[in-house]
Design a protein around this nucleic acid. Sequence first.
DNA 1: GGATGTGAAGTAGTTCACAGCC
DNA 2: GGCTGTGAACTACTTCACATCC
Lengths: 231, 231
Amino acid sequence: MATPRLRTRKLSEPTISRLPVYQRIAEGWLARGINRIDSKQIGELAGVTATTVRRDLAGLGSLGTRGAGYDTSVLSERIGDALGHDLHYDVVVVGVGNLGRALVNSAHFLIRGAQLVALYDADPAVIGTEIGGHVVRSINEPMVNATVGVLCVPASDAQAVCDLLVGAGVHALLNFAPQVLNVPLGTAVHYVDFSIELQILMYHLNNGTGPLGGGVLHSLGIARVNATRGA
Amino acid sequence: MATPRLRTRKLSEPTISRLPVYQRIAEGWLARGINRIDSKQIGELAGVTATTVRRDLAGLGSLGTRGAGYDTSVLSERIGDALGHDLHYDVVVVGVGNLGRALVNSAHFLIRGAQLVALYDADPAVIGTEIGGHVVRSINEPMVNATVGVLCVPASDAQAVCDLLVGAGVHALLNFAPQVLNVPLGTAVHYVDFSIELQILMYHLNNGTGPLGGGVLHSLGIARVNATRGA
DNA sequence: GGATGTGAAGTAGTTCACAGCC
DNA sequence: GGCTGTGAACTACTTCACATCC
């Protein structure tokens, strides 16, 4: 489990959120047979400045070549290392409504290192059916061992499911329910809330703003948080 | 369309992402008949410090009462005003695969002010069927007039759909495809990328970190961004 | 020549600490 | 007494500008 290894020093939160973007860009170029890219090109595609790209990448060590830019395959690999893609993660998805299905069926969702091991649901109508190559299990069955839990359940069930997952040894939760979760110290929870994303967009619409304003007016670098309990 | 009005001064990006959380908390308490809340309580439920809550709310004017906290109904209302919930938004969703359905069927997704006006898809098998009270139209039909467009299409189709929406007068896009969009200046784009959220979580899992560390170890305040083109 | 990597400067956001008001 | 609202300090992040190296 804990495989600390000689990882790079701690990266900043904004950097962490941008690295996956750079990696995807590098992989895209690599797939097209291009194996050189510079910080200006990455920045344009990612919607950030070239300086920011260089700072972010400098945090992973000296990956680039002065005068020539970055090697796309080295870049992809080193970012993967920094994000922990070389480790192995067993992922459990709880709740196979439309959102759960969307994730399970998405080619993009599970990246290298992450492997779906089980699906759970409470609805007898879907228990036993097969989705994305996995038979949906009852939430009342014992949980399999896993590292990451993804919650795609209603807010009212989120805490109970969270407790089940934590009890089964899950240390990281991706929570799509608009509900703050209580977890033991040492458990990471990351919240994604669609409604909040829409509200952020609406604010920018009203105010004609967005952090960036050059040619492409992105509403980049926004965030997500959590929600209320009960109600 | 443009209804600028006497809006509050510009709010910071992190503040904007937290206000919807505070609002939901206030509404939850209000629904339970409680009409007073203080910054410490909000902070605990939202996973931020009381000071941050007060700073954020101070940006909307003096909403609170010294010694007594905030009135939950006033709070909810004023946050709604700041985020533009008093205005009206016509929302179009393109792509009614699992993700599109999840959004359309979610009670939480559309908040006050936002109204779903049409669904589009390219798949003949779903065109003409009814989802969430709306008949799915063909992407080849002319687009209805709308303010906000939600893209739930594959990355390869995202730019084309984006162009259609922008051509039809849409000024704000919520993009779930892992694809950076080119839009005219003045159009807001907000990106949500599930795979990136998972990668951020995995980083925190490996590093035992998370911006906050008190009792609840949230991986709060993370972000989203975009992706590569082509591939 | 050209692009990286980085000290230094600048900007934005958070936290402290307390004055002000109920 | 208690909690808001805010100047001041602090911390974090970004941008500038340039020395460094291929």
